[in-house]
Design a protein around this nucleic acid. Structure first.
Length: 539
DNA sequence: CAGTGAGCGAGCTTCCGCTTGACTT
């Protein structure tokens, strides 16, 4: 008699099928099977009880699973061990229960033969209901906010296609707020004095770190400095370690790759998905920085073989963010033996490979030199400069990161110098830069807004709604986007308050520890929309 | 009798997050 094993993704199913062999049938749910209905609220406002229906097109998937299940003696549900995966497991469990077969929930944290076999040997008797309820809490709160508050906006701005949401609205605020900072920003010119020296054919300059508002103010100093010798007061050399970068996860990869390859984050995600499906890289939607120990060892051996022992670093453990769900590994090559050839795909793979290897390589060692030179006159003006050079390149050798490095000037303390020239430099203060898709995604991740599978989607939603435009990769709010934010700041300020959204996360997370999910949702929704009528629980 | 306006109801729209492949632009 066969046994059935269920996972979320077909690619994973194929791999696991190979590990488990012929006595098993491995099928994929393709994500969520059941969800709230699309065309109505789907939540009872009195009881907060959600009404779940088949996701469009998933009835077929379920039929296939059911047919197979009937032929099997037992069923193992191996969806991802995170909040969403647990919810998928729960719905599968409820659908399968009537079949009267033996049901198990299994968890594994990497797709390897050992991990799968072990999980099957130690199955659990039910889904983790705290995790399931935590997912429901988020789902229902997001639905209430989205479907009850968006219509307010339709009335207010007379446009039935507008939307607000727990994720998109704070993202909109980031972009609008930055635009307002830029608009208010007054560019200010300022001036500073630069002294150029030459020694042994080595030309270098030092700067007096004092800002003049008007060039006239600098004049007396400039005059004085023209004919004055300088004394080298300090030459301080120190060694600085430059640690290797962390490996990639989704947010990181989108930010770095879209910048380096000059493509949008959605394109990066599509390419990564393709590399994943072709077996070149690990799962591309992850918030984990974890790396399989054996794989890391293999990569380090490769570094040793190609660059030498001294380039081998360590496998570091990174503190997982509280939002991290830990179901996957970082994004890394599956193997160094196979790589795609040609096109942007190869470039993306190379980027991932280099970052992966670099993360396991040894730190670079830099020599930092601080120089202070003082003119022999009053008042005391400290001219400073800083140089860095590489003593040992370490991981830099792999990533080939461009560093602005120059040889320090050959100076020793007490030495007297005559400047070649002393000039007044003009600069202006610059406003903060607008967000690009890449920097927005990074900021969202930092604020804990959104999930790896939706980062690219968030930007698209804001564009689709006409809230922001993108020109030359730069995001700007439209007048409509600004109106929407005005509306939110006026009527639902907490929805666009980063501190409150962080607090919301905390409250929702407490459901995972066993707090009643409906209480949390009711409380949070009331906090966001106090005017909104949400009847108290009657029970 | 033709044209107007109020009132009503139906239909469409909206969230976030998980996953591909079958569609269209």
């Amino acid at each position: 008699m066969m046994r059935l094993f269920l996972v979320e993704s077909p690619t994973k199913a194929k791999t696991i099928q190979k590990y488990l062999g012929k006595d098993w049938k491995v099928l994929a749910s393709m994500g969520h099977i059941k969800d709230l209905p699309e065309d109505e609220l789907g939540v009872d406002l009195k009881t907060l009880e959600p009404r779940y229906v088949f996701v469009r097109g998933k009835r077929k998937v379920w039929d296939q699973i059911k047919r197979t299940a009937q032929k099997c003696e037992s069923i193992y549900i191996g969806t991802d061990p995170d909040r969403e995966g647990e919810a998928i497991a729960y719905f599968l469990w409820n659908l399968l229960k009537p079949l009267g077969k033996k049901l198990y929930r299994v968890r594994f944290y990497e797709v390897s033969k050992e991990a799968i076999t072990l999980s099957v040997q130690k199955p659990e008797d039910s889904p983790n209901m705290n995790l399931v309820r935590a997912q429901m809490a988020r789902r229902v709160l997001d639905r209430l906010i989205g479907y009850l508050l968006s219509p307010k906006l339709w009335v207010y701005l007379k446009n039935n296609r507008l939307s607000v949401g727990r994720v998109q609205s704070p993202a909109l605020r980031l972009i609008v707020e930055r635009e307002r900072q830029i608009r208010q920003f007054k560019k200010k010119k300022f001036y500073y004095i630069k002294a150029v020296f030459e020694k042994n054919g080595h030309t270098f300059h030092l700067i007096w770190d004092y800002r003049f508002e008007k060039p006239e103010n600098a004049k007396p100093y400039l005059e004085k400095l023209k004919s004055v010798p300088f004394e080298v007061e300090r030459v301080v050399r120190g060694k600085v370690k430059k640690e290797p970068p962390k490996p990639f996860h989704t947010a990181n990869l989108q930010a770095v790759a879209s910048q380096k390859l000059g493509v949008g984050v959605d394109k990066v995600q599509k390419l990564a998905q393709k590399l994943y499906e072709e077996g070149f890289i690990t799962y591309p939607r992850t918030d984990s920085l974890r790396m399989d120990e054996k794989k890391a060892q293999e990569f380090m051996n490769y570094i040793k073989k190609t660059l030498g022992e001294e380039y081998v670093g360590t496998l570091r453990k990174f503190k997982e963010k509280p939002t991290s769900q830990g179901a996957h590994e970082c994004i890394r090559p599956v193997s160094l033996d196979r790589s795609p050839t040609g096109g942007v795909e190869e470039k993306l793979f190379t980027l991932i490979m280099k970052r992966t290897l670099a993360s396991l390589a040894s730190p670079a060692l830099l020599e930092k030199t601080d120089v202070v030179v003082v003119p022999l006159c009053e008042p005391r003006m400290e001219f400073k400069g800083q140089w860095q050079r590489i003593l040992f390149d370490g991981w830099l050798r792999i990533e080939e990161e461009e560093l602005d490095l120059q040889e320090p000037p050959p100076l020793s303390e007490g030495e007297i110098l005559l400047p070649k020239k002393v000039t007044l430099e003009e600069r202006r203060t610059e406003p903060p830069p607008r967000y690009t898709e890449a920097t927005l995604v990074k900021t969202l991740e930092k604020l804990g807004i959104g999930r790896p599978s939706t980062y690219a989607q968030i930007v698209k939603t804001l564009k689709d709604r006409g809230y922001v435009t993108e020109e030359k990769g730069v995001l700007k709010p439209t007048p409509l986007g600004e109106q929407v934010l005005d509306f939110l700041e006026k009527y639902y300020p907490r929805l666009v308050d980063y501190k409150f959204t962080a607090y919301m996360e905390e409250e929702l997370d407490s459901v995972e520890e066993g707090k009643d999910w409906k209480t949390a949702v009711r409380y949070l929704f009331r906090a966001v929309a106090p005017e909104e009528e949400l009847p108290s629980s009657t029970s």
